[in-house]
Design a protein around this nucleic acid. Sequence first.
DNA 1: ATGTCATATGAACACATATGCATATGTTCA
DNA 2: TGAACATATGCATATGTGTTCATATGACAT
Lengths: 103, 103
Amino acid sequence: MENTKKAVEMPDLEILFDLADLFKVFGDSTRLRIMYTISDNEMSVLNIAESLNMEQSTISHQLRVLRQNKLVRVRRDGKQIYYSLDDDHVKKIIEMGLDHVLE
Amino acid sequence: MENTKKAVEMPDLEILFDLADLFKVFGDSTRLRIMYTISDNEMSVLNIAESLNMEQSTISHQLRVLRQNKLVRVRRDGKQIYYSLDDDHVKKIIEMGLDHVLE
DNA sequence: ATGTCATATGAACACATATGCATATGTTCA
DNA sequence: TGAACATATGCATATGTGTTCATATGACAT
């Protein structure tokens, strides 16, 4: 074999759009902070807002984005709604990026 | 141990901004297409543009973004400048995202 | 040096997006 | 039912971003 690199076929355009949309979600520091905040424990919206010292509505807006992209789990308990990271998959994506940034 | 999830410490804000900036780069379908195009072979700017059926300047602008984020390697040969993906690291980030999108 | 080709850059525009304010929705408890 | 609390949503706005056009920069050959 001349070339050791495997040819990676380009996914369909539609999938590429979805992929770009996914990475867009990770491309905002507020959302990253939210993800870190709920990475080990679920948290209510207000708790997240206080923890990050930001407006409740800002957090709520961004949580919606995370929800729509299936990156968080949601659980209602009375008046409060608790959010947590959906899976370790999400953490891995972040860690991969972090590796690149830190090197 | 009650909680099996490891507590992941939140990186400093400055690093989070860098991290968000990195993911922003992946958050555009044109740049993703460019990355796929040069993932197994280096390619000249014009070749990339023709291959994706886009303006040369559009590609050039986006290649600059990729360059600034150290995601591509650059090699000059005469009048042409050849771009290739910087490392397999980049591919892994894309694949991670793809896994999430396709599931 | 001049013309030609390849690439990069600047400006302008259209479009997307993050945030904050005000308010609506939904839940609990009295 | 009504008050109090938690969350979500609509709107307005400021800021960011992708693309195109025109042009500059740089390299090569004659």
